[in-house]
Simulated assay, not measured.
Amino acid sequence: MILRRGILVVLAALIVLSCAALGYQAVHRGGAPWSTDNPTQDARDVVMGQARTFMSTVNTYGPDLVEGQTMPTYRADVEKLVTAKFKADFEQNVPYAEATVIQSGLARTTKVDATGVGDLDLDRGRATVLVAGDLTNSFPDPKAPKDPSKRTSADAQPYRVEVTLVRQGGVWKVDDFTPVGAEAQQEAQQ
Protein backbone atom coordinates (compact mmCIF):
# COMPACT_ATOMS: atom_id res chain seq x y z
CA MET A 1 0.00 0.00 0.00
CA ILE A 2 2.82 2.41 0.88
CA LEU A 3 4.59 1.48 -2.35
CA ARG A 4 1.46 2.36 -4.37
CA ARG A 5 1.12 5.73 -2.64
CA GLY A 6 4.81 6.42 -3.25
CA ILE A 7 4.43 5.68 -6.96
CA LEU A 8 1.28 7.84 -7.08
CA VAL A 9 3.12 10.74 -5.42
CA VAL A 10 6.03 10.43 -7.88
CA LEU A 11 3.64 10.32 -10.87
CA ALA A 12 1.70 13.32 -9.57
CA ALA A 13 4.97 15.23 -9.10
CA LEU A 14 6.01 14.36 -12.69
CA ILE A 15 2.67 15.57 -14.03
CA VAL A 16 2.94 18.85 -12.10
CA LEU A 17 6.54 19.38 -13.30
CA SER A 18 5.53 18.58 -16.90
CA CYS A 19 2.68 21.08 -16.75
CA ALA A 20 5.02 23.69 -15.29
CA ALA A 21 7.56 23.08 -18.07
CA LEU A 22 4.85 23.40 -20.74
CA GLY A 23 3.62 26.61 -19.14
CA TYR A 24 7.15 28.02 -19.06
CA GLN A 25 7.64 27.16 -22.76
CA ALA A 26 4.29 28.72 -23.67
CA VAL A 27 5.18 32.00 -21.96
CA HIS A 28 8.66 32.18 -23.51
CA ARG A 29 7.60 31.30 -27.08
CA GLY A 30 5.67 34.50 -27.65
CA GLY A 31 2.50 33.58 -25.83
CA ALA A 32 0.97 31.56 -28.68
CA PRO A 33 2.82 28.24 -28.87
CA TRP A 34 -0.03 26.49 -30.69
CA SER A 35 -0.52 29.25 -33.23
CA THR A 36 -0.10 28.36 -36.90
CA ASP A 37 1.15 31.90 -37.51
CA ASN A 38 4.83 31.81 -38.46
CA PRO A 39 6.26 35.15 -39.61
CA THR A 40 9.53 33.55 -40.71
CA GLN A 41 7.78 31.01 -42.92
CA ASP A 42 5.49 33.72 -44.28
CA ALA A 43 8.56 35.81 -45.21
CA ARG A 44 10.18 32.75 -46.82
CA ASP A 45 7.09 32.23 -48.96
CA VAL A 46 7.04 35.91 -49.96
CA VAL A 47 10.72 36.08 -50.98
CA MET A 48 10.48 32.82 -52.94
CA GLY A 49 7.39 34.14 -54.73
CA GLN A 50 9.09 37.45 -55.49
CA ALA A 51 12.19 35.69 -56.86
CA ARG A 52 9.98 33.42 -58.99
CA THR A 53 8.05 36.41 -60.35
CA PHE A 54 11.28 38.29 -61.08
CA MET A 55 12.88 35.42 -63.00
CA SER A 56 9.69 34.81 -64.98
CA THR A 57 9.40 38.51 -65.81
CA VAL A 58 13.03 39.30 -66.64
CA ASN A 59 13.37 36.23 -68.88
CA THR A 60 10.11 36.48 -70.81
CA TYR A 61 10.07 38.92 -73.72
CA GLY A 62 9.78 39.07 -77.47
CA PRO A 63 8.61 40.94 -80.55
CA ASP A 64 5.08 41.35 -79.17
CA LEU A 65 6.49 43.76 -76.54
CA VAL A 66 8.36 46.02 -78.99
CA GLU A 67 7.08 49.57 -79.40
CA GLY A 68 9.33 51.61 -81.68
CA GLN A 69 12.86 50.61 -80.70
CA THR A 70 12.21 49.57 -77.07
CA MET A 71 10.05 47.26 -74.96
CA PRO A 72 8.45 49.75 -72.53
CA THR A 73 5.98 47.30 -70.95
CA TYR A 74 8.79 44.80 -70.34
CA ARG A 75 10.95 47.52 -68.77
CA ALA A 76 8.12 48.71 -66.52
CA ASP A 77 7.23 45.18 -65.39
CA VAL A 78 10.84 44.41 -64.41
CA GLU A 79 11.44 47.81 -62.78
CA LYS A 80 8.48 47.29 -60.42
CA LEU A 81 10.31 44.31 -58.92
CA VAL A 82 13.80 45.75 -58.41
CA THR A 83 15.70 48.23 -56.24
CA ALA A 84 17.00 51.53 -57.63
CA LYS A 85 20.54 50.08 -57.68
CA PHE A 86 19.49 47.09 -59.74
CA LYS A 87 17.30 49.28 -61.97
CA ALA A 88 20.41 51.22 -63.02
CA ASP A 89 22.17 47.97 -64.03
CA PHE A 90 19.05 46.73 -65.80
CA GLU A 91 18.70 49.97 -67.79
CA GLN A 92 22.30 49.63 -68.99
CA ASN A 93 21.74 46.07 -70.23
CA VAL A 94 18.16 46.02 -71.54
CA PRO A 95 19.08 47.78 -74.83
CA TYR A 96 21.04 44.64 -75.81
CA ALA A 97 17.97 42.45 -75.30
CA GLU A 98 15.80 44.95 -77.19
CA ALA A 99 18.26 45.06 -80.10
CA THR A 100 18.34 41.26 -80.28
CA VAL A 101 14.55 41.11 -80.33
CA ILE A 102 14.28 43.79 -83.01
CA GLN A 103 17.10 42.49 -85.23
CA SER A 104 16.54 38.74 -85.06
CA GLY A 105 12.94 38.41 -83.82
CA LEU A 106 14.09 36.56 -80.69
CA ALA A 107 11.40 35.61 -78.19
CA ARG A 108 12.38 34.17 -74.82
CA THR A 109 10.22 32.35 -72.31
CA THR A 110 11.17 30.89 -68.98
CA LYS A 111 9.91 28.19 -66.71
CA VAL A 112 10.78 28.25 -63.02
CA ASP A 113 11.06 24.72 -61.68
CA ALA A 114 12.15 25.34 -58.10
CA THR A 115 12.93 28.01 -55.54
CA GLY A 116 14.53 27.75 -52.14
CA VAL A 117 15.62 30.26 -49.54
CA GLY A 118 19.37 30.27 -49.06
CA ASP A 119 19.43 32.95 -46.37
CA LEU A 120 16.80 35.10 -44.66
CA ASP A 121 17.60 37.90 -42.23
CA LEU A 122 14.37 39.58 -41.20
CA ASP A 123 16.17 42.03 -38.90
CA ARG A 124 18.35 43.39 -41.71
CA GLY A 125 15.70 42.89 -44.40
CA ARG A 126 17.91 40.78 -46.66
CA ALA A 127 17.36 37.41 -48.32
CA THR A 128 18.87 35.17 -50.96
CA VAL A 129 16.77 32.76 -52.98
CA LEU A 130 18.05 30.03 -55.25
CA VAL A 131 16.03 29.64 -58.43
CA ALA A 132 16.27 26.85 -61.01
CA GLY A 133 14.46 26.54 -64.31
CA ASP A 134 14.72 26.53 -68.10
CA LEU A 135 14.96 29.27 -70.74
CA THR A 136 13.65 28.70 -74.24
CA ASN A 137 14.52 30.97 -77.15
CA SER A 138 12.53 31.00 -80.37
CA PHE A 139 13.01 32.76 -83.69
CA PRO A 140 10.83 33.41 -86.74
CA ASP A 141 10.50 30.32 -88.89
CA PRO A 142 12.81 30.83 -91.91
CA LYS A 143 10.28 28.96 -94.09
CA ALA A 144 7.51 31.45 -93.22
CA PRO A 145 9.28 34.72 -92.32
CA LYS A 146 6.16 36.84 -92.88
CA ASP A 147 3.98 34.79 -90.51
CA PRO A 148 4.77 35.88 -86.90
CA SER A 149 2.87 32.90 -85.49
CA LYS A 150 5.34 30.45 -87.08
CA ARG A 151 8.43 30.14 -84.90
CA THR A 152 11.34 27.75 -84.45
CA SER A 153 12.32 26.98 -80.87
CA ALA A 154 15.78 26.13 -79.66
CA ASP A 155 16.36 23.51 -76.99
CA ALA A 156 15.56 24.64 -73.47
CA GLN A 157 18.61 25.80 -71.52
CA PRO A 158 18.70 25.12 -67.79
CA TYR A 159 19.67 27.89 -65.42
CA ARG A 160 20.36 28.23 -61.71
CA VAL A 161 20.71 31.65 -60.14
CA GLU A 162 20.96 33.20 -56.71
CA VAL A 163 18.60 36.14 -56.36
CA THR A 164 19.40 38.71 -53.65
CA LEU A 165 16.43 40.61 -52.24
CA VAL A 166 16.14 43.51 -49.81
CA ARG A 167 13.07 44.77 -48.00
CA GLN A 168 12.25 48.39 -48.84
CA GLY A 169 9.16 50.03 -47.41
CA GLY A 170 7.82 46.62 -46.37
CA VAL A 171 8.19 45.20 -49.91
CA TRP A 172 10.84 42.68 -50.97
CA LYS A 173 12.72 43.90 -54.06
CA VAL A 174 15.39 42.22 -56.16
CA ASP A 175 18.81 43.82 -55.62
CA ASP A 176 20.95 41.44 -57.72
CA PHE A 177 21.11 38.00 -59.28
CA THR A 178 24.05 35.82 -60.26
CA PRO A 179 24.44 32.40 -61.89
CA VAL A 180 25.43 29.52 -59.61
CA GLY A 181 26.61 25.98 -60.15
CA ALA A 182 28.23 24.51 -63.25
CA GLU A 183 27.31 27.44 -65.52
CA ALA A 184 28.97 29.95 -63.20
CA GLN A 185 32.11 27.82 -62.98
CA GLN A 186 32.35 27.58 -66.77
CA GLU A 187 31.97 31.35 -67.13
CA ALA A 188 34.65 31.97 -64.48
CA GLN A 189 37.09 29.70 -66.33
CA GLN A 190 36.71 31.57 -69.63
Results as ranks from 00 to 15, higher is better:
143 K>G: 01
158 P>H: 12
165 L>S: 04
168 Q>T: 14
165 L>E: 15
141 D>G: 07
163 V>M: 05
144 A>T: 09
151 R>N: 02
143 K>A: 15
151 R>S: 08
164 T>Q: 15
133 G>Q: 06
162 E>W: 11
144 A>N: 09
144 A>I: 02
153 S>R: 03
161 V>H: 14
146 K>Y: 02
158 P>D: 09
137 N>S: 13
148 P>Q: 00
154 A>G: 12
137 N>T: 00
136 T>S: 06
135 L>G: 15
161 V>S: 05
151 R>W: 10
145 P>A: 02
139 F>T: 11
150 K>Y: 03
133 G>C: 12
160 R>T: 15
148 P>Y: 01
143 K>Q: 11
141 D>M: 05
168 Q>C: 04
163 V>D: 01
134 D>V: 15
148 P>R: 04
165 L>K: 06
134 D>Y: 14
159 Y>P: 06
168 Q>V: 10
161 V>A: 15
140 P>E: 02
145 P>F: 00
147 D>M: 08
143 K>P: 02
135 L>H: 10
149 S>G: 05
137 N>I: 01
165 L>C: 05
156 A>G: 12
138 S>V: 15
149 S>P: 07
147 D>P: 08
136 T>A: 03
154 A>V: 12
149 S>A: 03
166 V>M: 11
165 L>H: 09
160 R>I: 15
150 K>Q: 10
165 L>A: 07
162 E>K: 09
138 S>G: 05
159 Y>S: 04
149 S>C: 04
141 D>V: 01
144 A>M: 12
155 D>T: 09
148 P>H: 01
140 P>Q: 00
157 Q>N: 13
151 R>H: 02
148 P>S: 00
149 S>T: 09
146 K>C: 11
145 P>D: 00
137 N>P: 09
160 R>L: 11
135 L>F: 12
165 L>Y: 06
139 F>E: 04
160 R>G: 12
144 A>G: 04
136 T>R: 12
136 T>K: 06
143 K>C: 07
165 L>D: 02
162 E>F: 04
136 T>N: 07
165 L>W: 01
156 A>V: 06
146 K>L: 08
147 D>T: 07
165 L>M: 10
162 E>G: 07
137 N>G: 01
150 K>A: 14
133 G>W: 04
142 P>F: 07
168 Q>I: 08
167 R>H: 11
150 K>L: 03
167 R>G: 05
142 P>I: 00
134 D>C: 08
